[in-house]
């Protein structure tokens, strides 16, 4: 029972309280770039959730079962980025072969994900927080993806409305998006301290 509570708390904390996009500034590029339409945003979110769960789990395994026993922590970053690049490639090949429909709908997003800082960032944060159980690492990775999807969908929803607003010329585009994002982080600050 206790472990279930811990896992649930970890999940809620990574989705809402420590949301990677809104409190750790990770994955800002797609957050600003692909949040124009809500269906695109959702597609991106799903692709990221997919990859981040796989790579978060894999990097935890490699880190704890191979690198740490061998004392090779210094090569951690290289291993992480190669795992992520590999995972993206594998997912891409697997989807193309077995789920062509899904592959079509992910489209350009999949290769883009390699350079999404949210994924490498999460792997690094799992290591920094000293997570020592595999299950918790999996839950955190999945939660990070869900959190990213949520943030990018909220932003897309706002931006769809923003199109009909009369914004001063110099603010059009990125500036107003950034300021909107700022106000959104302010709203999410209200969740801080929710988890004890």
């Amino acid at each position: 029972m206790e472990t279930v509570t811990t896992l649930l708390l970890a999940f809620i904390s990574i989705v809402i309280v420590n949301n990677l996009v809104l409190t750790k500034f990770l994955g800002i590029c797609p957050y600003l770039g692909v949040s124009g339409r809500i269906d695109m945003a959702f597609g991106m979110g799903m692709a990221v959730t997919f990859v981040v769960t796989i790579s978060g789990t894999l990097t935890w395994m490699i880190d704890n079962w191979i690198l740490m026993p061998l004392g090779l922590e210094v090569t951690r970053y290289i291993c992480f980025i190669l795992v992520i690049a590999g995972a993206v490639q594998l997912v891409e090949m697997y989807l193309r072969k077995f789920f062509p429909m899904l592959y079509e709908s992910f489209g350009i997003f999949l290769p883009l994900i390699t350079t999404n800082c949210a994924i490498l960032g999460l792997c690094l944060f799992i290591n920094l927080w000293g997570i020592d159980s595999l299950v918790e690492a999996v839950v955190l990775s999945f939660g990070a993806g869900v959190g990213f999807t949520m943030a990018i969908c909220i932003m897309a929803g706002i931006r769809e409305k923003l199109k009909f607003v009369d914004v001063p010329d110099c603010f059009a585009g990125a500036p107003i998006t950034l300021i909107t994002a700022g106000i959104l982080t302010l709203a999410f600050m209200g969740f801080a301290g929710m988890i004890k």
């Binding site: 001063p168 603010f171 990125a174 500036p175 107003i176 950034l178 994002a181 700022g182 106000i183 600050m189």
Partner: peptide, 25 residues
């Protein structure tokens, strides 16, 4: 204090971009 929080980061960058846009125009 708000400038130290995430909101400060977003708003400062947003305003910075707007200022650069004005200068370029």
């Amino acid at each position: 204090t708000a400038m130290m929080l995430p909101v400060g980061a977003f708003v400062t960058l947003g305003l910075g971009l707007a200022i650069v846009n004005v200068i370029c125009k």
